[in-house]
Structure formats: structure tokens, C-alpha cells
Computed example of a mutant assay.
Amino acid sequence: MFLKLQDNAIFVADSHYNLKNKEFLVFLEQLDSKKIECSQLILMGDNFDFLSGESKYFIKQNEILIQLLNKLSLNIEIFYLEGNHDYNLQKLFPHIQVLKREEQPLLGKYKDKTLALSHGDNFINWQYDLYCSVIRNPILLKFLNMIDFGNFISKKIDSSLLGKNICHKMKDFNLLVKKRINNYKSDIIIEGHYHQGSTFEFKDKKYVNIPSLCCDKKYIKIINYEFIGVNI
């Protein structure tokens, strides 16, 4: 899969949609009504606070958004980079180009610049890789769904996520970025995950962390090499 990034493309990251965080629904409704217009949408992961293709409870809870995304995907080119809160999504979004964690970074080109896009939870360590492979295992998820009597497992996950404070600034984030860019060879590196909404330039590389739609109420639009924050 290869991304030919267009001017006016929109990036949305870390919406963490749930009963408390409604920003992603507002954004999608504005796209649907043409209040926001774009022909290319890149979803950088964790747009749902939790969603997997095997979880009946969370599929039902997010049904309106799933239907909206599928409707929009008929007219907008959409890429969905799975995050650590939303995965195994291809079956839910047949017309969206979904990239699993192990398929990231998504490589591409913007004008004369090369691109690499990831949700941002890759290149951590082997222990985290193992954890990710376990929690994404379709057989395990189907089994958990089967024994989720009265949705007690799903409701416990839901309650735990609703109680989390996910909006905070990271100290020395620039130091983490310096380490992360060594994993990429592209001119421009775009990630979500960290909820920082910051841009850095190191020598010949530009690093863009897409802001959390939930925390900052912003998405990003690219216009003539500039990554511009837009309030919803």
C-alpha cells in the first residue's frame, strides 16, 4: 500500500470516541454535511476508545460512527492506521484502506517529499510486540466475546477507559522524537499516539505528531507543505 498525499488531505488522531468523548462523531457529521470538505482522509489510530472486529458490544456501541465512515468511504479516499485501541477493523470497513500495526509505517509521497506514517506505538520493544500480537489475536477475541455473558467483560473495559485521563503534556517529548526518527528513512514522519500535537525538524527530517482530536479539539490539514491545525 502506498499513499500519494494530496493537498487539503486531513489527518485525525486519537479521538478516543466513547460516551464521554464525542468529538469524532461531530467531525464525521461535519464531513457528511459538507461543512468540512476533503477528498482524502487519514485516520491515525485510536479514533475509537475501543473497537475490534470481534467485539459485538463495542461494534453496537459505535454503530453510528461505523455506518458514517462506511458512507463517507464511498466518496473519500480513507486510510485507517490501526492503533492500540482499535484493531482488526478491515471487516468493518470494506472500502477503507486499513493498515494493521505490523504493516506500518505506511510509506508515501507528498510532492517532492517522501513520507512515513504510523500510529506511533511501533518500534518499542519485543515485549510490547508480543503483548500486541496477543491482544489482537482473533481466536482469543472471539473466545472472550463468547464468554462475555451480560457483556460483563466489555462493560468493565468500557468503565475503565471512561475513567482514564488521557490528556497531558509529555516532558522532554523532543528527546523521544529524536530516538523515534532513527527508525524512519523518510523526509516527513507523521505519527499519532502521543497526544502532543507538536512538530520538530532535525537536520533533513520533519516529525509531525498529530494532535489528539479528543484533547485538543483539532485535526490537521496539509496545505503547501504546512501542517495546519483546524478546530472542530
Rank of each mutant, 00 (worst) to 15 (best):
Asp121Phe: 12
Leu130Thr: 12
Leu81Lys: 04
Val134Arg: 05
Ser73Lys: 02
Glu103Ile: 02
Cys132Phe: 11
His85Lys: 12
Asp112Arg: 13
Leu92Tyr: 03
Ser73Asn: 07
Trp126Lys: 15
Ser73Asp: 08
Gly108Trp: 10
Gly108Asn: 04
Asp121Trp: 06
Tyr131Pro: 06
Phe93Cys: 04
Leu99His: 08
Asn88Ala: 12
Ile78Cys: 01
Gly83Trp: 12
Ile66Lys: 05
Lys100Leu: 03
Ile96Lys: 01
His119Ala: 14
Glu103Pro: 07
Pro94Gln: 09
Gln97Cys: 03
Gln127Asp: 13
Phe93Gly: 01
Ile64His: 09
Arg101Trp: 12
Phe123His: 14
Thr114Ala: 11
Leu74Tyr: 06
Lys111Val: 11
Tyr80His: 07
Tyr131Gln: 13
Val134Ser: 02
Asn75Cys: 03
Phe79Glu: 01
Asn122Asp: 14
Gly108Cys: 05
Leu106Met: 05
Phe93Thr: 02
Lys91Trp: 00
Leu130Met: 11
Ile64Cys: 04
Leu81Asn: 00
Pro105Gln: 05
Tyr80Asn: 00
His95Ile: 00
Tyr110Pro: 08
Asp86Tyr: 06
Leu130Ala: 12
Ile124Lys: 12
Asn122Arg: 15
Lys113Trp: 11
Gly83Ile: 13
Glu103Val: 03
Lys109Cys: 07
Gly120Ser: 09
Glu82Gly: 10
Asp121Tyr: 14
Tyr110Val: 09
Leu117Thr: 06
Asp86Phe: 03
Lys111Tyr: 13
Leu69Ile: 15
Tyr80Val: 00
Pro94Val: 07
Asp112Ala: 13
Glu102Cys: 06
Pro105Thr: 03
Leu89Ser: 08
Gly108Ile: 06
